[in-house]
Nucleic acid binder design. Structure first.
Lengths: 182, 182
DNA sequence: ATGCACATGTAAGCTGTTACATGATTTT
DNA sequence: AAAATCATGTAACAGCTTACATGTGCAT
C-alpha cells in the first residue's frame, strides 16, 4: 500500500488534479511506480475521505473543470511518518528471468529475440534518463536540498538500466556461443 | 499471470508437491518470483483443471500423504508456446525510490538508516548468490545445456545486487555530505 | 509440553487491470 | 470528418496477501 504515499510525494512537490497525476505517473514518477488513472481516482477519493488531501474544483476556459488536490497538514504528517518507517525489502518479480530458466523447455531462437527486445527497452530508458539528467540536473555537484532526492532516484535508474544492458549482452554472448556450438 | 509459467518451469525441472514448490519459491526461484503456499495450491488446482499438470497422491512413512504434480504434455506445449511469446516490458515498483524522493518532506536521519538497511539486504543477497554460484556452477565456462538458464539468471542477480549496493553507497555519500554541509 | 517441519487447503479483503461510459475542445 | 487531448469516473474481474483451519510426527 504505497500508491497513497507516491501520490502524497507528487502532490507535495506540486498540487495537481487526478488527470495531472496520471500523466506524471506515465512519465517521471512512473519510472519507478506505475499507476493507471482509474486507480489514481479511486485512491484520491479514499485519501480525501481520510483527510490526507483536500480538493477544489477549478473552472477552466475551453476545457472541462478540474478537481485540484492539495496535501493537507494531516497528509504532510502522514508523509513524514511514512518516511520514518522502514521500507520493506523489495523483491524483484521478473518474468524475463523465469523465461531464461525455461530455456531447456522452450524456443531458444524466440528467447534470443526476446533478450534483444529487452535490451532495446533498457537502452531506450537509459537514453531517456541521460537526457533527463542533462536537462534537469546540469550541475550535479551543486544541487539544492529539494533536488537531491530526484537526482538520487535518477542515478538509480541510470545504474539499473546500464546493468540491465550489460546483463543482456552477457546473455546474448552466451546464447549465441551455445548456438554456434551445436 | 505468470505464476502458472513459473510453476511449469519448476515442475519441468523436477516434479514436486505444492509444499515442495512453496519451499522452492522461498529459495532459488523465489529470488525473482515470490509466491505463498496458499497461492500455489490455488494455481495448481486451476492448472490441473486446465490439463497442464496431473497429480498423484503418494503415501509416506511417518509423514502426511503428498500430492505430487507432474507436467503433462499439454503443459509442456504451453510452456514452449509461452517462451515463444514476447515478455512484457517489466517496470520497477520501488517504494525505496518513492521514499528517496520524499526526502524534502520527511525525516532525513530515518531515511539514511533505511538506506543502510537496504544496503544490508542487498549485501546479504549478493553473498547468497556468490555462494550459490560457487556451489552449483563451479566451472561457468563449461555449462551443460540444462544449466545455462539457471546460470544466466544467477548472473543477473549478481549484477543487480552489486549495482544496488553501489547505488546505496552513492546515496549515503550524498546524504552524509549534505548533512555535513548544514 | 512446546514448538517446528511436514502437508493441504478455505475465506475475506485489498490492490491492480481491463473494459466500459461520457462529454467538450482542439488538432489533423 | 476523424482522431487526439483534456477530464472524471464505474464495474467486473484477476491476482495477491493475511488470517484462519486442521492434523501428524519428531525433536528439545
Amino acid at each position: 500500500m504505497a500508491l497513497e504515499h507516491a501520490i502524497l510525494v507528487s502532490l507535495a512537490e506540486r498540487s495537481a488534479s487526478g488527470y495531472d497525476l496520471a500523466r506524471r505517473f506515465d512519465a517521471s514518477i512512473g519510472h519507478f511506480w506505475k499507476a493507471s488513472h482509474q486507480q489514481i481516482y479511486k485512491v484520491l477519493a479514499r485519501m480525501e475521505g481520510d483527510g490526507w488531501v483536500s480538493s477544489e474544483t477549478v473552472a477552466q476556459a475551453g476545457r472541462p473543470d478540474k478537481k485540484v488536490y492539495v496535501v493537507t497538514s494531516a497528509g504532510r504528517t502522514e508523509l513524514a511518518a511514512w518516511t520514518a518507517r522502514p521500507t520493506a525489502e523489495e523483491h524483484l518479480r521478473s518474468e524475463f528471468s523465469v523465461k531464461l530458466r525455461a530455456l531447456p523447455f522452450g524456443d531458444a531462437a524466440a528467447i534470443v529475440e526476446d533478450v534483444r527486445r529487452q535490451r532495446r527497452h533498457h537502452a531506450d530508458r537509459l537514453a531517456y534518463y541521460v537526457e533527463s539528467a542533462a536537462k534537469f540536473y546540469p550541475d550535479p555537484d551543486s544541487l539544492t536540498h529539494d533536488q537531491l532526492g530526484g537526482w538520487l532516484v535518477l542515478r538509480g535508474g541510470l545504474l539499473t538500466e546500464e546493468t540491465a544492458i550489460r546483463w543482456c549482452d552477457e546473455i546474448l554472448q552466451r546464447l549465441l556461443d551455445a548456438e554456434a556450438d551445436r
